[in-house]
Design a binder for these strands. Structure first.
Lengths: 334, 334
DNA sequence: TCGTTCTCTGACAACGGTTTCAGCGACGAA
DNA sequence: TTCGTCGCTGAAACCGTTGTCAGAGAACGA
């Protein structure tokens, strides 16, 4: 592993001159230096550069679960957007746990120039510390309570919930259930609130026994759906607030041999790769995924480019959701 | 951001003593030092540590596509296994491209203590450079031509291909097609070879027009399936060599209103989260996913622990595949 | 010819840790 | 009392890079 001094020696100049050449300054011995660099296969030590400059050209990315296709797509967007600008990604899973999120954040904070985070809960304290440390921070997918002062790339979850409810109402459903995500997360809360609001607009109330809360994981979707089906008079329509819980719900409906949409209509939040192939094809509220990652990364890199993170208040981008009508929702049976 | 000198000053000792305390040495002023550390919220600078020690406690992970559920699961396994041992993950997508893989590898090589890689092709040169640089390297999912001297965690792809063919043969199919992955990748080649072998054992040949090669992406599965369906006498059974191409094939069959398994049976490689929910449920060759990631990371960290990467030759782990019979395969129609 | 400016240069001091080295005090043995 | 040993300590060097600083020539105008 050759150093800048090896290059300098070979080119017959000082290390300072090599450094200047690398930073793009005009240098008389440029050709000789470049030759030496190529010959030695020299690459600057990131550690030394970081130590000196205080920058790492690395971005910390913390998501609740990388196996969730939504987050996988978001991370992919971030990765390509960051690489385009010469930044790398340090990835961590929080596993939907605030404690673990706290751990990984404090662990990575000295190693990155900025952080993109999908917080496990709205009440997280750690992100505040991150910002206190003067480190740019962008939220993606999820927000923090009182997070208006932070940059964020979100979707209009409330409107998405509303679209789901309106769709079910328009089909004539009256016994409607919802399996929401953690109410301590922005998407969990907003999707449910929008859903409830639109039902109310239609003169309908979300009955307590149909108002269930899961944890954005497949298993909770499965269990809560079983619970719904076991009630004396089950719902005729179901809204599941994210892709994994939708899969769980579908498995439960499948296992209990419940006809979709004849006996129960189901609408999910977030599309699945196999959404159109399911039996029947899945109706969902869809939203941009890779794009959210790209936007979040661009926002962050922009902050870094400005050299200062107090550049004119917080920038918050909210994208729209879209109803994708397929076969899993229909009119309620008589 | 406080430094070790701040801590030293506050505790009334020298920086060296603080460093010793942190490394676990016995020190008289341990209490005072710990107090100062807590009070200042001191955390050592990774950059400085790396510069001095030459280790970063970071592992580079390069996969072709993080949105492939298989790789997402593998990465999740790696992430949790590495965090348990105090290591972090630098993630990069190669996008199934050797050039990009080369770029990200040379970019990250000075920043990590080891690399886990799913190479884009078997002929990649870069991994050799990685190893020449004395950096531990573990392959996962895919191998390199002549890669016997590298550590690897793989599955028995040949046997998986064989299982798929045997299953189709046992159902009585004779017009059998395969959509394989890049033949320049280990899984692409071995799955096809195993498939062809087992067909031969059954006295059957894979006809040239039924022997197609895609690129492990959804779009190629879609296009090649359309091509198969347009032939004068289409196959009655189809093997798709990875999850994304399976999805593509299913979409093509769906769009062309081809009955599964009545008109065409289909068996995929790698299960889908929604596999059991598809219409009909998907028959697949399944394999461990998260576990592969965990094993690969453990292998790598073991090398690092030994301090030397010539510890007794290469270690190669091969896991078994498993046939999961569901509804998408059946007897050929008359 | 002599200043003055301009461009480029090398020496040197950081950045924040770890490690080596020599030294110091306390203690036990002779 | 003296000497050696033991356990702990601080000063200093070092890891590889970048920024500062003063200075060396060259170019230029007077």
């Amino acid at each position: 592993m050759s150093t800048i001094h090896d290059v300098a020696a070979r080119a017959g100049v000082s290390a300072a001159t090599v450094s200047r050449h690398l930073r793009g300054h005009r240098v008389r011995t440029a050709v000789a230096i470049q030759e030496a660099i190529d010959a030695l296969g020299y690459r600057p030590s990131i550690a030394a550069q970081s130590l000196k400059s205080g920058r790492t050209r690395t971005i910390g990315v913390v998501v609740p679960d990388i196996t969730n296709p939504y987050f996988a797509a978001v991370v992919k967007g971030m990765e390509s957007a960051s690489r385009d600008r010469g930044y790398r990604i340090l990835l961590a899973n929080s596993d939907e746990s605030s404690e673990r999120e706290d751990d990984v954040l404090t662990d990575m904070i000295h190693q990155v120039d900025g952080v993109i985070l999908a917080p496990a809960t709205e009440q997280d304290e750690t992100p505040l510390h991150v910002r206190d440390a003067g480190m740019p921070l962008v939220f993606v997918d999820r927000d923090l309570a009182g997070g208006e002062h932070f940059d964020a790339v979100l979707v209009n979850n409330r409107e998405g919930g509303r679209q789901a409810a309106s769709h079910l109402l328009s089909l004539g459903h009256t016994r409607i259930a919802a399996i929401s995500g953690q109410q301590e997360t922005t998407p969990g809360r907003h999707r449910r609130e929008g859903f409830v609001e639109a039902l109310a607009d239609g003169g309908l109330e979300l009955l307590p026994e149909f108002d269930l809360t899961g944890d954005f994981r497949e298993e909770s979707g499965y269990q809560l759906t079983l619970q719904l089906l076991s009630s004396a008079e089950p719902p005729t329509a179901l809204f599941t607030a994210n892709n994994l819980m939708t899969v769980g719900a579908l498995k439960a409906l499948h296992d209990m041999r419940v006809g979709i949409p004849d006996q129960v209509s189901i609408i999910g939040f977030d599309d699945l790769d196999t959404g159109p192939l399911l039996n029947p094809p899945l109706t969902v509220i869809d939203r941009p995924m890779v794009e959210q990652g790209v936007l979040a990364m661009r926002l962050l890199l922009q902050r870094l480019g400005q050299g200062d993170d107090r550049g004119g208040g917080s920038r918050r981008i909210t994208l729209d959701t879209k109803l994708v009508r397929r076969g899993s929702t229909g009119v309620p049976r008589r």
